[in-house]
Design a protein around this nucleic acid. Structure first.
Lengths: 336, 336
DNA sequence: GGCGTTTTTGCAACCGATTGCATAAATTAC
DNA sequence: GTAATTTATGCAATCGGTTGCAAAAACGCC
């Protein structure tokens, strides 16, 4: 009913018998304003449920206090980034909210880079969090050229300067492999994501380190790669079983591929984990509910999200470039 | 290197030798501007990669062209809304993008309603899409009081006027049940979400209709309710097996609960689908990859998202209240 | 060529905040 | 009691667009 009559700081100013500037300063807790005046203005604002106008403030301050979460457009296919992205978004959202930033979501076409200009040059967002699983480099390049602030989930290219948060992939690969070795497995396979991805190379490195330390040889017949999709996981598993029928364990680079791999193993008439043990990666929510429940490497996803948010904001405010890697841990369930 | 020198319409105006107003009108394709002038201004804008300033435009036009997607804060537990929410967000995003609206994501505390004011009265968003699975009514009430435009996923309260998109739950319940009847199942159970939810009541109604039409009695010993979480699905299943050991099929109100129920069934030593057939609901991506693959009711989630976006925008622009329900279909896999 | 239209363009106010600088009020110093 | 500070407030410009209204330019017609 009662159409709100006090919508702007000018309204408050009139009520308080002061000027707009004073109200603005009071609400921003400027030391220039006397305590009494501040108190009066604040209580007026509270009383009238005053909410400051965001576009005006943004125009005036030349910043949007909004961060874009950039992810690929969803396609039919079920890819890692989907579930993983959702879980990480929760962490990002809370990290941003605590610093009073808003979260905008952009679904981009993998081949298009116009989006960067459209969001940055228009002042709609102050920075980006890149989660595009594929073609990340193209987007990184676009953002660097624009000189736009951003942070990525993943390992940064060697010579470039930008923020990143990533899991400790070497340790992840090592933990998974060591667990399988401890369980007495002899022929341990590796199913990776695309071999050009640094994360995948690191996980492979961890796998090889663990084997070497146990005095084992690296057997390339035990190594296969997929593209993180579940079908590719099943296919890689089949190829592996073909090449190395004596395999008794496999470390798979994602929970989704691992779950598909377990199906493939069963279809060939083997049991998980008795005949072939399986370790996944990510500890997505579904890992606990797969059949059998998946032993996997947990990345602390809420933490990752929070760090992506905070470190990007830190960069916006101070220009400090951070590259952090978060710890991983082994979660033992039934599959290995 | 070259710091962009043409950032505002005033810059373009200078280059074109016209006034700001003319540039503004030309870029907005106003009929007031001559074709030649328009062409010149447009090509200048393109040439200099001009991007209009969003906050200024929003301030001036008194609208943000941004819609908030409101969902609950994520908790440890894995609930329906999570996966479902992610999938629907893709559809919303594309629906909004095609009308040039931005998508903001807000994770709200279930008991807090301040968020509405904080986003609406500040002019940060023009409207809301409500996906909070629990306590939806509280949030609806808050938005109605604020007189803020919104649309919900779900069935609207009888007497209230607001937009909604929902699945056809009655038909969904009916399709699932009819399928089980056709397969020759005799004792068909029902595991619903919370019984106070209208969606759940509709699915139950569809279930009962189908049974009645087949000349069967409704047996309340075959009906149980959970809260959509997977643990509650497993528990409801156990209770059902206890009460009605002769049960040979069950229609479960969500894929997540259905998958948990299948585990429970196996733990009791029964086979799916031979001993007990299971039909789920939602057709989330995981349904195709469960063990066995889940027969389920598909809601066209991308369409739902698109309609949520478009109908809300329609409402913003014309004030037309829409309440649509989208068709569902039965997807037959291995579990029933 | 002059006058009435119609089509184009520009002026200036406005959207609602922030902020540098000037000024008024209150304190302190002597 | 007055000058010198210190503290608190207000004025007015600014951020970068949009838009109502007035004015100029182009056009049609006799």
């Amino acid at each position: 009913m009662t159409k709100k009559s006090v919508r702007t700081i000018a309204d408050i100013a009139r009520l308080a018998g002061v000027s707009k500037s004073t109200v603005s300063r009071a609400l921003n807790d400027s030391p220039l304003i006397g305590e009494e005046t501040k108190a009066k203005i604040r209580s007026l604002a509270r009383e009238h449920n005053f909410q400051i106008n965001a576009p005006a403030r943004r125009l005036s301050m030349q910043q949007s206090r909004t961060i874009a979460f950039v992810t690929h457009a969803y396609h039919k296919d079920f890819s890692v980034a989907d579930l993983f992205g959702l879980e990480i978004m929760g962490g990002i959202s809370s990290g941003l909210a605590s610093r009073e930033y808003d979260l905008l979501v952009i679904h981009v076409d993998p081949n298009d880079t116009k989006w960067a200009r459209q969001y940055y040059d228009t002042g709609r967002v102050d920075g980006f969090i890149l989660m595009t699983s594929t073609r990340k480099q193209i987007h990184v390049k676009a953002l660097l050229e624009l000189d736009a602030p951003f942070i990525i989930w993943g390992v940064p290219q060697p010579k470039q300067k930008y923020c990143s948060v990533t899991g400790d992939n070497i340790t992840g690969g090592r933990l998974a492999t060591e667990h399988l070795i401890r369980s007495g497995k002899q022929r341990i396979g590796f199913i990776g994501g695309p071999s050009f991805e640094i994360e995948v190379q690191h996980r492979l490195a961890g796998y090889e380190e663990a084997l070497n330390e146990a005095g084992r040889e690296i057997d390339h017949a035990l190594i296969e790669h997929g593209d993180f999709s579940n079908t590719s996981g099943a296919e890689a598993m089949s190829r592996l079983l073909q090449k190395s029928p004596d395999l008794d364990a496999v470390f798979v680079n994602s929970d989704l591929m691992a779950i598909a791999a377990m199906d493939a193993i069963r279809e060939e008439g083997h049991q998980v984990p008795e005949d072939i043990a399986v370790v996944g990666y990510d500890d997505l929510s579904i890992a606990a509910h797969s059949n059998p429940p998946l032993t996997t490497i947990r990345q602390n996803i809420p933490l990752a999200g929070k760090l992506l948010a905070q470190n990007l904001i830190e960069y916006l405010q101070t220009g400090m470039v951070t590259n952090v890697s978060i710890p991983v841990e082994l979660i033992v369930r039934k599959s290995a």
